[in-house]
């Protein structure tokens, strides 16, 4: 290659997570090699041993903060990143592992590990934005492939990504999907959950279970009675909100409200 390589540098970082969101990048089978031509993959350990020093033009961050070491590591990554985008429910809301925020972690560790003292684990699992400024949060458990490509393209082009903040309900209407709650009495978080999956669960005859977290201004309180009418008791409603986005404020608060009232 003649001259200096001016292609932007892309970095992918992992914290506490299942690897699924960064795998989404490798799942872009049709676009992966073109992406590899358009950018320099500067740090992506799941895909390559090759590494380039920072600074990085775009950092994609997967996973939540659960250890003291990771608090320091994310600050270091932020300093080296011109733009930092968090990907997935762990990075944007703390993930399923944020259930520890509700239960008290020392007890949890003792249930899984004979010697909890060997572990470096914080009592909470927190989103990246609680520790460093984040340029954009891409939701989902897992994230959606098309939305990921839109976010990468937008940031490399220097524009804001076009990712809708409306609810899954709107996706159902756009898809001509019959409402599972109205038509079948199936409990569904679609009215309060951000779009992005393409109304996936309703298309599979089941209710939305909140993978993309709360929509922009969710009216969770008014969803309580339709959920009850579908046969959910308070405990079931609490569990419905306490999954992959359990610590997202709107879902967390609604679960507390149902626990209390």
């Amino acid at each position: 290659m003649g001259g200096r390589d001016r292609r932007p540098k892309l970095a992918v970082w992992k914290f506490a997570s299942c690897d699924g969101c960064q795998l989404t990048l490798l799942d872009c089978e049709d676009e992966l090699l073109a992406l590899g031509d358009a950018v320099r993959i500067a740090h992506f350990p799941e895909a390559t041993r090759g590494r380039l020093r920072g600074p990085y033009d775009l950092s994609l961050v997967e996973g939540s903060i659960t250890t003291k070491k990771d608090v320091a590591r994310i600050a270091q990554i932020r300093r080296q990143s011109r733009r930092l985008v968090t990907i997935g429910a762990c990075a944007t809301a703390g993930g399923i592992q944020a259930l520890r925020n509700f239960a008290g972690q020392p007890g949890l560790a003792g249930q899984v590990y004979p010697e909890p003292a060997y572990l470096d684990a914080l009592a909470t699992s927190t989103p990246i934005a609680e520790h460093v400024p984040v340029d954009f949060e891409l939701r989902g458990c897992p994230i959606d492939k098309r939305q990921l490509l839109e976010v990468i393209t937008a940031f490399l082009a220097g524009r804001r990504p076009q990712v809708p903040a409306y609810s899954v309900c709107v996706e159902c209407k756009l898809a001509g999907q019959v409402c599972v709650m109205v038509a079948h009495g199936t409990p569904c978080l679609g009215p309060v959950t951000q779009a992005g999956c393409g109304a996936l669960c309703p298309r599979f005859d089941r209710g939305c279970y909140g993978c993309f977290g709360p929509m922009e201004t969710p009216n969770t309180a008014s969803l309580a009675s339709p959920l009850a009418a579908c046969g959910l008791d308070r405990g079931a409603i609490v569990r419905l909100y306490r999954s992959f986005n359990a610590a997202a404020p709107a879902f967390r608060d609604e679960s507390f409200r149902n626990e209390r009232d």
């Binding site: 659960t66 990771d70 592992q97 239960a103 949890l108 249930q111 899984v112 470096d120 684990a121 699992s125």
Partner: peptide, 11 residues
């Protein structure tokens, strides 16, 4: 890899 305590979360 930081532990996520799945077996405990399932209870």
């Amino acid at each position: 890899e930081p532990p996520r305590f799945f077996e405990a979360l399932l209870r």
